[in-house]
Amino acid sequence: MATFPRKLALSLIAALAVAMTACSPEEQGGPPPTPAVTVAVLGAQDVTLTRELPGRTNAWLVAEVRPQVSGLIAERLFTEGELVQKGQPLYQIDDATYRAAANSARAQLARAQATLAAAKLTAERIAELAKIDAVSVQDNDNATAALAQAQADVGVARAALDAANVTLGYARITSPISGRIGRSNVTPGALVTANQPQALATVQQLDPIYVDVTQSSTELLELRRSLDEGRLSRGDESMPVTILLEDGSAFPYQGTLKFSEVAVDPSTGSFALRIEVPNPDHVLMPGMYVRAELAAGIRADAVLVPQRAIARDPKGNTSAMVVNPDGVVERRPVVVSRTIGDQWLVESGLAAGDRVVIEGLQKIAPGAPVQITDTVDNAVSTGQE
């Protein structure tokens, strides 16, 4: 009976030996399969580098409506927040006093014109009598002087009437520009005075609209240094400017850079740039915070590498896995400067034609052979900074 457990143990040992002989070659120390990777073939291309600057919107034209004569507001002639046209009536001031002054000036002109007519007839008669020596030379001279004085009186009276009509016209306050008018600061019955400091209302022209952005003087110096050294070439200054709204979306209309300030603000170390943007739908309103993407320059024969191909070590050094012509992986130190879309702009370490691993990185190591299963052409970039 003691031989049965021994036979059972021998059977188990034999079964285990058979199982071990059935293991895979890899488990028995054979060579592992070659890892499969996807690479991106780098290419050289001209890339427009952009810079993103913060800014605020400002109205293209701003007019503060103030009275030029004193009086009571008789009527408001507009709706707050609506679009008004240049010359459109906005307020009516009680003009009874100014209308009476205009009527008085008109009567003074009529009197002066009547006096002129009488002086002209008198001068003509005395001139005829002087030809036959029926009157003295002195009388003729007096008649001529009286005519000239009457003509001058007519001119003075006409000027006074014009001034009275101008003052009467100021009683009807009109819009100095076309644009959108804000709220009214006065109501009918309010007393206003000529050239008062408080505006009755403000009209702003919002199409087009200005976007004022600021750029640091340090960045400007770096840009100029890059241009001087030939690392960048200046693009077309009329290149469109993309406006990004507060929620990050792009404004549908692109702007144009109008001018750069000629002095640096000593308190901030930056200078201002002004961009003109079409705003037909009045989406942009004065005071909004926006960002502007402006072209900084063109990098000729630039090399871009996908961001997922770049790794950083704890010290912040960047590198990429490159497949050499022999199909072996190399770890290549790389220097990158800025992102352009989903890619890095390469300063050194990579060149056009290099095959950079973008998929399968977790399965490879430097010096190991790999099998390329897919190749991506990375020669065309559609992103911006």
Rank of each mutant, 00 (worst) to 15 (best):
Q371E: 10
Q28K: 12
L257Q: 02
V380R: 11
G30T: 13
I177P: 06
A152I: 10
E385I: 13
D162I: 11
E124M: 13
G287A: 08
N185Y: 06
P266D: 02
Q149N: 14
F251D: 12
N378W: 07
L200F: 01
Y289K: 04
H282I: 15
A117V: 06
R234P: 10
L273Q: 05
E276K: 05
D342W: 07
E293P: 07
I13P: 00
G353E: 09
P369N: 11
V186P: 02
M321L: 15
L109G: 11
P252I: 14
I372S: 00
V303E: 11
P35H: 05
S270W: 01
S381F: 07
L90D: 03
R338H: 10
K86P: 01
G367N: 07
S238P: 00
V39T: 12
T218E: 01
L227V: 11
K120W: 03
P286I: 08
G29K: 07
I209K: 03
V37I: 14
D94L: 08
D228R: 15
R106A: 13
A146I: 13
G29E: 06
L223N: 12
T256D: 01
A130Q: 13
E27H: 09
E276C: 05
T167M: 13
L273P: 04
Q198P: 06
V290N: 03
S348I: 10
L12W: 06
L221V: 11
T48S: 08
Q307L: 05
G43M: 11
A352L: 10
L304E: 09
T375L: 06
L90H: 04
P89G: 05
V211D: 02
V305L: 02
D95Y: 03
P333K: 09
N103I: 14
L49S: 04
A146G: 12
A365W: 00
L116M: 12
V283H: 12
D377A: 12
R338L: 13
A119D: 05
H282W: 00
P197L: 01
N185K: 07
S104E: 10
G360Q: 12
S260H: 03
P240H: 08
R312M: 07
L90S: 03
A127D: 15
V62F: 00
N58D: 09
D313R: 01
A9K: 15
A40C: 08
H282R: 15
V323W: 08
N103L: 14
G383H: 07
A152W: 05
A379W: 06
R331W: 09
L168V: 09
V262N: 09
A119I: 14
T48Q: 07
R299W: 04
P35K: 03
T339Y: 08
S381H: 10
M285N: 13
L116H: 09
V305M: 04
G182H: 06
L12V: 15
L232P: 11
A300D: 10
S337M: 07
V84L: 04
P366A: 13
N324E: 09
I73V: 10
Y289A: 09
L90E: 02
V290K: 02
G87S: 04
V376N: 05
T21K: 15
P5N: 11
V328H: 07
V137E: 12
